[in-house]
Simulated scan of single mutants.
Amino acid sequence: MTSIRRSAVDRRAQLVEIGLELLPTTPVQELTIDEVARRAGISRSLLFHYFPTKRDYYTAVTRAAARALEEHLLAGGEPGAAQVPGMLDRYVGWVETFREAHLSFVRGAAGGDPWVAEVYEETRERLVDVALTALDLPDDARRRQLVRSWFAFTEDLVGQWTREPTMSRDELLALLRDVLDRLTAR
C-alpha cells in the first residue's frame, strides 16, 4: 500500500478519523497503534511523529468522538425548551448505535483515567450549559449540580435500557424528561 503525502494537519485528521471509524467496535483504550498505522498506510513510527505518545493519540480520538456526540445532540436546532426532547431522543439513538464505545467513554472517565475524565468533564459541562440555556434556568451552582446529576442518571439508565429494555422508548424518554423537570423545578 502506497501512502499519500499529506500535510501534518491532514495526516493528524486522517489518523483521528481512523480511530473514530474503529470506535464502534473497539474501546479507545484498546485501539492498536499498529492497526491505525496499517489502515493509514504509514509506519508505526510515523504515527508517533504526529502523536508523540499513545495517550496523545487516544486523547485526540476521544476529543473528536466527544465533539461528534455534541454535534449529534445539537443537530436538531430546536429552539429553547423544545431542544431537550430532541436531544434526549438523539442521545438514546447514539447509545443504541455506539453502546460499547459510549460506555467505555463514560466508564473510563468514572474509572479515574485522567485523560478520558478531562474530555468527559469538558463535554458534560458544555451539555450542562446547553440544558440550562434551553430550559431558561439560572446558571448557579445548585442548578449545575442537579443537571450534572441528571446526566449521570441518564447515562446509567440509557446504558442499561439499551442492554435490557424494561419500558418502551417513549416511556424512557418521558421518564428522563420528567426527572429533569422535577430536579430543576423552580
Rank of each mutant, 00 (worst) to 15 (best):
S3M: 09
R5L: 15
S7R: 15
A8P: 04
V9A: 12
V9Q: 15
D10I: 00
R11Y: 02
R11S: 05
R12E: 10
R12Q: 05
L15V: 06
L15S: 05
E17T: 05
E17L: 02
E17H: 14
I18N: 00
L20C: 07
L31K: 02
I33N: 01
D34R: 13
A37C: 07
A37P: 14
G41H: 12
I42T: 14
I42G: 03
F48A: 02
H49C: 12
Y50M: 01
F51E: 04
F51N: 04
F51S: 03
F51C: 07
P52L: 13
T53N: 03
D56V: 02
Y58F: 15
Y58C: 12
T62F: 08
R63F: 00
A65S: 09
R67V: 05
E70I: 12
H72L: 03
L74N: 11
A75N: 10
A75P: 00
G77D: 11
E78R: 09
P79L: 12
G86V: 09
G86Y: 02
M87Y: 00
L88D: 00
Y91I: 01
W94C: 02
E96Y: 06
E96A: 14
F98M: 09
F98N: 11
F98R: 13
F98G: 06
R99L: 11
L103N: 05
S104Y: 00
R107D: 14
A110E: 14
W115G: 03
W115L: 11
W115E: 14
A117P: 06
A117H: 09
E121Y: 08
T123N: 07
T123A: 02
E125Y: 12
R126G: 05
V128G: 11
T133Y: 04
T133N: 05
A134P: 04
L135P: 07
Q145V: 08
Q145R: 11
W150A: 10
F151V: 07
A152E: 10
F153W: 11
T154N: 00
T154I: 04
L157F: 15
L157S: 12
V158E: 08
G159Y: 11
Q160A: 14
R163P: 03
M167V: 15
S168I: 02
S168E: 09
R169M: 03
E171R: 12
E171T: 06
E171Y: 04
L172V: 08
L176V: 04
V179A: 13
